[in-house]
Structures are given as structure tokens and as C-alpha cells.
């Protein structure tokens, strides 16, 4: 009887624990996509927006990465590697993906022909954050004298993991579903991590070292603009763009 009760207790505990599955964080869907009819964009009326992403907190001090794991990394001409999840300088935040989350019109956006380029230099990704439109080719280069593996870990797209020999041919990839802050990492060098952002339209930008961004080619109308950071999350704002308007001062603050 005791054995049976203990057995039931174990089974119940097992069922309880397996039910405690860690929730996967849902990824945002950048840009609206629908089966509704799409309209052509009148390029003569499009405007642009620009602004700065501010950081009001105290950024963690960048930590020196120990690249002794791989002598080729440690001896790289790029020198020492300092990493921080929040790249902020004088209150300006870099590596923020700014994109149109909701556009006023459903347009048949052309996929940019130019590649979005990610290079591996000195055992770090350059850039740390990249944006690409759905279907746009992303070119992964390896300028290092060591082998890397490129491991994409998406939620909305199929994952993949490929090794890349030193200074070898670029690996070309694209993603078919919109997804923000899609992590990409190298398991050979565990400090190497970057983020790909896949947007439904070409209306996006990534903030530079001074926190600045600019998005061109916006048709007139009311938008929901979003700024997303790998650690700090997403902020949105509503804004209106009039024909040919060059709107500046579109600032976000984290």
C-alpha cells in the first residue's frame, strides 16, 4: 500500500514537472503582412524619418573577452575584444533595430537586391545587429584565420548551423518569415553572438554608434514605429508622415 502511494506520488510529481515547460518568448512580427490587395507606391510622395535612440540608465562596463580559447582569435589584428550587451555612449544607444511595425498601406515591396552583409572579423560579428527584408539575401563572410560555425536560432524560421572555413566563400542565406532579434551564434567561440532582424518591408534601420537612424521611402500616412533592443526590449510610437516630409527628431528612449 505504501509502495503504491509512493508510486502515485512520483507519477504525479513527474506530470507536474513536465507541465512546467519554460515558455518560449514570442517573437514580434515586424511589419504588417496580410492577404489583402497591395497597392503600388508613388515614389514621388515618399518621405523619410530620422532620429536618435537614447539610453537613460547606466550601461554596464564592457567586459574584456578572453579569446585564448582560440589562438587565431587572440592573435587577430583586431586586437582586444570588449563586449557589452548594451552599447551606449554618452546616452546614445547603438544596435537598436528600428522598423515600421504598422504601415498605412499594404504595398508590394520589392526585395532589395543588395545583400545584407555580416562579417566575422577578429572573432566578432560585424555588425552586431543587422536588418534584412523577408527574402533578402544575407551574406555571412569569414575574414578570420580560423573556422567558425554560424548557428541561427530563429523562432519563426527554420534554424540552421553551418561551419565556415577560414577566409572561405561567403554563406548566403535568407529568411522567409518576419522575425526580430533572431539570435545567431558561433559555438566554437561562445562569446560570438549577433542578431538578424527580418522585416516584412524595407522600412527599417539599425542605430549607429551615436544612436542615430534614418528610414527612407515612407509613403504618406500614419505609422506605428518600433525600436527593439536585444536586452532592453521594444518601444513603439505612432507617427504621421506627410508627402515628401523629411521628419527628424523621431527619438526613442530606453
Amino acid at each position: 500500500m505504501i509502495m503504491r502511494n509512493i508510486f502515485i506520488l512520483f507519477v504525479a510529481a513527474g506530470l507536474f514537472f513536465t507541465g512546467c515547460n519554460r515558455n518560449q518568448s514570442p517573437s514580434a512580427t515586424p511589419g504588417n503582412s496580410s492577404s489583402e490587395p497591395k497597392v503600388a507606391i508613388d515614389q514621388s510622395t515618399t518621405g523619410s524619418i530620422s532620429g536618435t535612440v537614447h539610453f537613460t540608465g547606466t550601461a554596464p562596463t564592457p567586459i574584456k573577452v578572453d579569446m585564448g580559447f582560440d589562438p587565431a582569435c587572440a592573435m587577430s589584428a583586431r586586437g582586444e575584444n570588449f563586449a557589452s550587451p548594451i552599447a551606449a555612449k554618452e546616452g546614445k544607444l547603438a544596435n537598436v533595430f528600428v522598423y515600421v511595425k504598422k504601415a498605412p498601406v499594404l504595398a508590394d515591396w520589392a526585395v532589395p537586391k543588395e545583400h545584407a552583409v555580416v562579417d566575422q572579423v577578429g572573432c566578432r560579428y560585424e555588425p552586431h545587429v543587422v536588418g534584412a527584408m523577408v527574402g533578402q539575401t544575407i551574406e555571412f563572410r569569414n575574414s578570420d584565420n580560423t573556422e567558425h560555425n554560424i548557428h541561427a536560432m530563429p523562432n519563426e524560421n527554420p534554424g540552421w548551423n553551418e561551419s565556415q572555413a577560414p577566409k572561405s566563400q561567403a554563406i548566403l542565406k535568407h529568411f522567409d518569415e518576419p522575425e526580430v532579434m533572431l539570435p545567431v551564434k558561433c559555438n566554437q567561440h561562445p562569446w560570438m553572438k549577433m542578431y538578424v532582424n527580418v522585416a516584412a518591408n524595407p522600412l527599417f534601420a539599425v542605430t549607429d554608434a551615436s544612436g542615430h537612424f534614418e528610414i527612407k521611402g515612407l509613403p504618406p500616412g500614419e505609422y506605428t514605429l518600433a525600436a527593439v533592443h536585444e536586452k532592453l526590449g521594444e518601444k513603439t510610437m505612432a507617427l504621421k508622415v506627410t508627402p515628401k516630409e523629411q521628419k527628424s527628431g523621431v527619438d526613442f528612449s530606453f
Binding site: N149, H151, N161, E162, S163, N187, Q188, P190
Partner: peptide
């Protein structure tokens, strides 16, 4: 060491 996929 997060190396499970170092060999793909």
C-alpha cells in the same frame, strides 16, 4: 562551454 554545435 556551449559547444554542443561546434561540430555541425
Amino acid at each position: 562551454n556551449d559547444a554542443g554545435l561546434a561540430v555541425p
